[in-house]
Amino acid sequence: MKKRWICLFVENEIGVLARISGLFSSKSYNIESLTVGTTEDPTISRMTISMISDDKTFEQIKKQLNRSVEVIKVVDYTTVPIYMKEILYVKVSSCSEKDKSEIFRIAQVYGLKVIDYNKNSVIVEWVEKESKIDEMIELLKNTFPNRVEIVRGGSVAIESISVSNR
């Protein structure tokens, strides 16, 4: 079992997202994350999907996706060099002054952006690799137990031009 990434070009039509997610659920494949948005061609949507599976199941998933009429192209991102980032928003509430300076320090060290705050709360924003976001969430949860609200976006990815950058 290992983590896989697929980039999917699909028709930008009503029901296609349901078709793709339905394909995963009907075969009992579990989606870790899925992001979707339109491309430079407004009739085509691009999905970035991550899942954890063994080799055999992953092969089957790719074949199943490929044979869907609505799927234009399937690209396996598991082994190709790509840029891949995820967005993270964290709101920390019930902050003391000390908490706030702690948040600001974390933001400074790691390069998070503080985008909003008031007397009691702070919102930070971060665009990073999934693994780093996992670690950041861990850090913030430990530092401010039961006071963090976390929103993460699911990764999007693009093939790199020259070098490996994962």
């Binding site: 009503i14 029901g15 349901a18 078709r19 339905g22 394909l23 009907s26 009429v69 609505e70």
Partner: peptide, 16 residues
Amino acid sequence: TVGIVRNICKYAVTVR
């Protein structure tokens, strides 16, 4: 209809 049959047919579409 399309939502119901989607997983049991080759292709399903509503004409819009």
